[in-house]
């Protein structure tokens, strides 16, 4: 979780406009889903991975760490598509199984790389202000913002409490570990409430009247960037349709 956030806040393309990044990620996603050929999907996966690692310079370790969970699911799904078990418990390749599995793997991989690109290059702050801009109700955007902000405060607090417990041997046996964990969770609740109350005082001091309005910085959309993205997408689309 926090390594995704760190990458999103430190990568080379963090300041690029949200419009360009979503145009690339969602456009490629649409192509990956709609184009029938595996070659099309595979080129999407390759291009999006290159954009993430070479373009935005997201550390490959972070990319892989984030990738590994969906990759695991994908692998299990693909194996169950490719193989079949008959009534004598003989395992064999399913008819068209490999082809089907390959197609699915290429598409799913393409989809995941698109979303990963967006997640690893775009700070949550930009995504939330984007939500506002496309007309998502303010209440939902504000809730998302506060949850995001408090997630970090809460994990910090939980981590500090865990360290304090562990240093007093609260996690030395399994039984104690469970007990300490229970106490920790129970303590987070009143702490969160008092934090929320303190925040209310802090915001009231700054004239809060029930609405969390902020001014987001303008990030210019580059015409050349949009043109390049559209060009790449057309190219991939052409490959996908040509090989179908």
């Amino acid at each position: 979780m926090s390594h995704i956030d760190t990458a999103a806040n430190t990568n080379r393309w963090r300041g690029k406009s949200l419009t360009e990044k979503t145009l690339l990620a969602l456009g490629m996603l649409a192509i990956a889903i709609s184009v029938p050929s595996w070659q099309g999907a595979l080129s999407v996966a390759v291009i999006m991975t290159a954009a993430t690692l070479l373009g935005a310079r997201v550390p490959p370790g972070v990319w892989w760490q984030t990738m590994i969970a969906p990759f695991g699911f994908l692998l299990v799904g693909v194996i169950s598509l490719a193989l079949q078990v008959d009534s004598h418990l003989h395992v064999a390749l399913a008819p068209h199984g490999l082809e089907l599995a390959g197609r699915l793997a290429a598409r799913a991989l393409a989809g995941v790389t698109c979303l990963l690109f967006l997640a690893l290059t775009t700070p949550a702050a930009h995504l939330i202000s984007g939500l506002r801009r496309i007309g998502v109700p303010a209440e939902i955007a504000e809730l998302a913002l506060l949850i995001y902000r408090f997630l970090f405060l809460l994990t910090d607090t939980a981590q500090a409490m865990h360290t304090a417990q562990a240093s007093r041997l609260g996690h030395s046996t399994y039984r104690r570990h469970l007990r300490s964990l229970g106490v920790l969770i129970a303590n987070l609740m009143p702490r969160s409430l008092s934090r929320a109350r303190a925040l209310e005082i802090g915001l009231a001091a700054r004239g809060w009247r029930g609405e969390l309005r902020v001014l987001s910085p303008v990030r210019g959309v580059s015409v050349a960037g949009v043109a390049a993205i559209l060009l790449v997408e057309l190219l991939v689309l052409a490959i996908g349709l040509h090989t179908a």
Partner: peptide, 12 residues
Amino acid sequence: DDQLFAASVAED
């Protein structure tokens, strides 16, 4: 931390 809520400094 009781005062900062926005995701970025300028916004806050």
